[in-house]
Amino acid sequence: MLKNITIIAFDLDDTLWPCMPTLEHAEQTLYRWLQHHYPRITERHTAIQMVETRKQFMEQDKRFTIDFSLMRQEFLKRLAIEAQYDPIDVSEGGFDVFYDARQEVSFYDDVLPCLERLQSKYRLGAISNGNANVEKVGLGHLIEHAVSASDLQVAKPDKQIFHHLAERFGASVDRVLYVGDHPHYDVVGSIEAGLQAVWINREDTAWPDELPHPKYQISSLHELELLL
């Protein structure tokens, strides 16, 4: 059993909702917006080509691995310049469209009922390397503090981001339990930062052989409640 926990913090993408359907929806929404408002861009790139080009673009600047919002804004500027549109107009308008659609998540069935029960006993937080917004996705009434990599310019598994969340709560790291799906970024990263950790493995994937095995593994948040 987990002991002396006063705060439970969660990863977001693939922990509280599936990530890929969310991003695919946002990409498609952006592409349709570009087709309507800036057609020369979509005449130059199919939707699939745009995704592949963006992945290549992301590799050009280390900042983009920490700040996905910056990466998408800069990529839209590049597309605009290539198609001879105003880069600021395309970047600002396009990013707003993408960002709003990116917040339209579909929670796993266990998430809302479990978080509501947990909130009655624990303070809840979130840490993410992505750009989901807990207020906009509908968790603002449950999540007290949320930290993103772009806020600190430091990403998981760096210890600083975990320590920063504990500081936001005014708590020592050993009183914080972190729940996430990524073996390295979430589980090993949080343990090395001094937190307690639970691996949520919703897809029954194998744990990487090269990493130390976690003490606690669950397949849903219902199982988390049984550990507390």
Rank of each mutant, 00 (worst) to 15 (best):
G125T: 03
Y99A: 13
G130D: 01
I127S: 07
G138I: 12
V97W: 11
Y85F: 15
Y85A: 09
H184T: 13
E144I: 10
D110S: 06
L177Q: 02
V137K: 04
Y108L: 03
D100C: 12
S148K: 14
G140I: 05
V179N: 00
E167G: 11
E92N: 14
V111P: 04
D181W: 02
Y178V: 06
V179C: 06
D181I: 00
E116K: 12
L118K: 14
K156Y: 01
L177T: 03
E144F: 14
Q119M: 01
P157K: 04
K159M: 02
V105W: 14
V111Y: 11
N129P: 12
H182S: 10
D151S: 12
S172A: 13
R175K: 11
F169V: 03
Q153T: 04
K159Y: 02
F169R: 00
F107R: 00
Q103G: 14
E92C: 12
A155G: 05
Q103S: 13
Q103H: 11
A101N: 06
G180C: 08
D158A: 15
A149W: 03
H141G: 14
V111L: 08
K136Y: 09
L124E: 00
S91Q: 06
G180L: 01
S120N: 08
D109H: 15
K159C: 04
S106G: 08
V176N: 03
